[in-house]
Amino acid sequence: MSNDKPTEQIRTRIWLEEPEPDNPFATRAAYCHGYDVYGAMLGQASWVEMLYLLFRGEAPTPPQAELLEAAAVALANPGPRDPSVHAAMCGGVGGSTAAASLIAALAVGAGQFSGGRELFLSMEAWNGCGMNIEAWQRHMAAPGEDTASIWPAPEHHPGFDPHGVSTTTIVKQTLTCLAGMSTGPRLSWLQKNRSQLEFAAGRPLTMSGVVAAAFVDLGFTPEQGEMLYLLLRLPGAAAHALEQWQYGHKKFPFFRIELENDPAKEGL
């Protein structure tokens, strides 16, 4: 076996691995942003501390970890009515692979209606408008960008529910809880100015709108926030997918159809 240095390398600021002396493809020690994962963090660090470290490059302070932990609990299960969980259940009910159910949840949950893209756009709005109510009002009144993209043109203000009537209790509970924990200023500002923002948007705040503020307070970029949001909503999708397989397809809705151009009817 040759000991030549490889000609191709993957550059990373996140992860260092040291090989076992008898096998360059086996890991003796792994370091995440300098911390010994298996020799020091394991058993000491929490899941959300590891998440924060991976994305931000520094370990969170205890209040930051608590805020991320609470946000993760709030996001863990959007519930079976949510389109992403619905998609995962479509995988589960038919016995699709576990990965397919999660891919279904990710694909549907990536969108601009309660999905990852909405969270991304909402975080961008926070970065652009900050805690300036006039800036938010101008932002909401401005026409959207006309740049061609794989994403469709947004149909509502990100972070606000296009079908909502009033702020839901669970959104208010989440905002109150997270605002009480945050070390950043946006969540408490959002709590104080929620009504004005909702008036400007013409719609009530959503869970993604609250989490967007939390993620900006935690120092995440919109790209990092989008990834985290997709990731943290998967547990519920997974559990519901597995549950529908247990129930079986006969207990899963198939829905009625009204075909508007049925050739059989047109021929009658």
Binding site: K5, P6, E8, Q9, I10, R11, T12, R13, I14, W15, L16, E17, E18, P19, P24, F25, T27, Y31, H33, G34, Y35, D36, A40, M41, Q44, A45, G57, A59, P60, T61, P62, P63, Q64, T183
Partner: peptide, 27 residues
Amino acid sequence: FPLSCEHILYEGEPKRSWQPEDRLLKS
């Protein structure tokens, strides 16, 4: 495309110790 440990070119923070107390003080 098997990747040995040498395929990883680490450019990040030097090794440091995981001390929960440090972060408490930081907060």
